[in-house]
């Protein structure tokens, strides 16, 4: 049998036969159960559109007012940039850079890479140059893109503060909340091995 007809399970290395999988069914590794293929009709289009949505929401989250604190006649506004710069004074400055990367820059980079790889697929075109490298990076960045964790952190912080002061929620807060939903939808729509297979067949043809 030719090696093209085999899939080595990325988790346990067992060779599985690469058969055509019907849409909306799931093929799993015979030994460890890792999902090897989960084709969904229109998945590429959906992922590309969700990534575009996420990018717009990220831009809105970074630009619009985020939170406002009011207590005893005093008020203070904080943007997402202020949250990033919270550690900027003194020896903690590198943590500011890390926060900026984790909550805005890396998610943005990941969504750009996803659009770059998958938009040509969705339109039925040949993959863009270096699409494989871009998609590899999108997958590598995934654990480090923490925009959705940030918004849960915001919720915890709001509960801590709510006893002491009134908090006003700005558009950036809702943009981040929507981003949480969009991120979960995107991650559920992506089947890694199916994307690789599509990339492989499209670049060959």
């Amino acid at each position: 049998m030719h090696t093209d007809q085999l899939i080595a399970c990325p988790t346990c290395d067992v060779l599985n036969r690469d058969e055509d999988v019907k849409p909306h069914t799931v093929a799993r590794c015979a030994r460890c159960g890792t999902v090897l293929a989960a084709p969904k009709s229109g998945a590429m289009t959906r992922i590309a559109m969700l990534s575009l949505t996420a990018l717009v929401l990220l831009a809105a989250a970074a630009g619009f007012p985020f939170l406002e604190l009011r207590a005893q006649g005093l008020s203070h506004q904080a943007s997402v940039l202020d949250a990033v710069l919270a550690f900027s004074s003194g020896p903690m400055a590198p943590l500011s850079l890390a926060t900026a990367l984790l909550i805005v820059l890396l998610p943005a980079a990941r969504y750009c890479a996803l659009i770059y790889t998958l938009a040509p697929m969705a339109l039925g075109w040949r993959p863009a140059p270096h699409a494989a490298a871009a998609y590899r990076w999108a997958e590598r960045l995934k654990p480090w893109a923490m925009a959705e964790i940030f918004i849960i952190g915001v919720a915890v912080a709001l509960v801590k503060v709510s006893g002491l002061a009134r908090v006003g929620l700005g558009p950036a807060f809702w943009a981040f909340a929507a981003l949480l939903v969009v991120t979960i939808l995107t991650d559920n729509a992506i089947c890694r091995l199916t994307v690789w297979k599509t990339l492989k067949t499209r670049s060959a043809s």
Partner: peptide
């Protein structure tokens, strides 16, 4: 990582001059 973000938001938000101010500690890093 939630904890680090909570500290970042509290520090950015709670800056009411004399009344209340929060600064991050070394443990966040």
């Amino acid at each position: 990582m939630i904890d680090v973000f909570v500290v970042a938001i509290l520090t950015a938000l709670v800056q009411l001059d004399f009344a209340a101010a929060i600064a991050p500690g070394m443990a966040a890093v």
